[in-house]
Design a protein around this nucleic acid. Structure first.
Lengths: 195, 195, 195, 195
DNA sequence: AATGAATGAGGGTTCATTCAT
DNA sequence: AATGAATGAACCCTCATTCAT
């Protein structure tokens, strides 16, 4: 069926997101994605060089969107401030809540192969590390914390909480998740300790 | 070659640990494992019902050993104390340092399929959660933290740090990693905040 | 090679019939069938879910065709009459003669597995049993014969004769086979016995 | 365990008969037979060159025993007489009833491969054919019957009835089976037709 | 741009048979 | 005679990818 390349691509991305979320990267075949999208098997390869490329497109498009939203949400506050962190955390949880299938692709059992899981943390962690370094420079975070280690831990925490909470939202209220994530941030804790 | 079933099994486990660490669960074939172990393909299936069973055996045996070591290391200290946590963390890092290939199987990109990654956190997180609840009951951890959320975050942090640091130990000294992990634990931080 | 799915399927059925006839179900591999049909191994599974499905398709399609031919041949005569039986028997032998490979798949050593042999008799015998019961009701067949037992015996006889005669047609002329089969039918014998 | 070669062989034959009856020749592995017999896998090959040899041993030993019993039962009567046939048929049914597992190996779905089914009929049919020829020579069977064809049909009937009746003995009483088998024999029918 | 039949390398697994003990 | 771990060829089936239409 003739439908226009943009729509076809969108349908493939949408179908793939659902299937990857349900079954993970390599339990889904390109033929299944095509069928789910209502196009022929060969059409898949008109839009993506291979299955992993589609997977990566989903992942990094989503990550870029999340980034943009967080930046917009944080722009109203002083850089590195507690308020900025709170706003960014809120936005993260709102995004996770609104796009559960996507969250599962990003952070759950599907982010298995192609080293995607590592790449995701690799994208998230450096920004966190820079923030921690800035906080340490301005004396708002304890020096005994290793910024690189803490950033890895923080990135992994966010990723895990997103997967865990999205999987079964009744496990905690959104406010509880937000409060805990905020409280666990080593930067956020600093003020209380150095009065 | 005749070698005795116990030795053959050990060789298979060893070979598989190396290969899984390098390439992940489904990029390694049972034939490759057998060849690496110096046995015939069919021999593999004399010792394990299938590839996933071997993978799970490696994972859960290792987890049990880590558990035992941590329990032994922590036994000298008061339950829930900062000293116990420090000892357990030290033991965790020593274990990670000594068994790098194993760490990668347990925590890095190989723990992809079969929902193993989730099972691992599922095994680790509940114990952490119980500890947090005990700390909250005895007033040693802030009540605004949600124990379940914090436990997931902590488990993910440990898992991630193990993978990240083991991958490239020059990223931080063992002392830095230990200090930071200790500092990031919400229970460990409490004393400083409630003087 | 592009050939159209119907033709490809036909080629697979044809190749499989020949090979099954020669060597039987489990001495033939799906790869051999594909090769014999001039297609790739994977093409086999585009047309049949597995090897047994192709075998069953051959068997039951052939049985249905035989049935249809016999019904057409018998339609000109009174139901249950000697003439109808003769016509059906003739058609059976004509079919067997024309499709020797098929006969061997249906009735010889290839009808081994999957319980196909039993299913074939299970398809043939009930119709024969009903005919015997009707003959007994109208007094044209001796009551001391157990219709069920006789039907099993008759079905097995037909199946065996088809295999035996097709294997080596010089063993008897078609007329001899027809006359004997007719003579052996318990219904056909009745008139001579009850004058 | 040391047990003496004869006993070990017997145990293997017994175990194999049961398993072949249940699942057929090639759904049973030599290791399963050995295990069922309580011996090691390798022991199997001390007693039989391969799996098919054991299968054939079971089949032809059984056939020889059946033959001997039928000969003994028929010896009291005039050769070719109705009484002899009745006695042999009775003995056949008694044997079938007493050894159900064996019957299934001999005649049911297990007699699949290695062309055993054909060999069985090949062993049974010639004797029947000789009897029919004798009956025709002495004018006790219609000449229009082809002895070869009829013998094949008779052999197949016996084999099928044995399988069918043994599988589910409630389908007909033994007397009904015997009477019908006797009635269906072309030799047996002759007297009634040529008074 | 779209189709979907065709491809074929490769994977997991089985099992008859061997042989060192 | 007995053991049972080891062998490895072979099989069934999958699926990412291609390409003639």
């Amino acid at each position: 069926m003739r439908r226009g390349p943009v729509l076809t691509r969108t349908r493939l991305v949408f179908a793939a997101t659902e299937l990857f979320a349900e079954r993970g990267l390599h339990a889904v075949t390109s033929a299944q994605i095509a069928q789910h999208a209502g196009v022929a098997t060969g059409t898949f390869y008109l839009h993506f060089p291979d299955k992993l490329a589609l997977f990566r497109a989903i992942v990094f498009d989503a990550l870029a969107e999340l980034r943009a939203r967080q930046d917009a949400a944080g722009a109203a506050h002083a850089p590195g401030s507690r308020e900025e962190l709170a706003a960014r955390t809120e936005e993260f949880l709102a995004f996770a809540e609104a796009k559960r299938a996507l969250m599962r692709v990003l952070f759950a059992r599907s982010a298995e192969s192609g080293g995607i899981a590592e790449e995701i943390v690799g994208v998230i962690a450096p920004a966190i590390e820079r923030r921690y370094q800035a906080l340490q420079t301005s004396g708002r975070m304890a020096r005994e914390i290793h910024a690189g280690v803490a950033a890895q831990a923080r990135a992994a925490s966010l990723v895990r909480i997103a997967a865990w909470w999205t999987e079964e939202p009744s496990r905690a209220t959104r406010a509880e998740v937000a409060a805990t994530l905020l409280r666990l941030d080593p930067g956020a804790l600093a003020p209380a300790e150095h009065p």
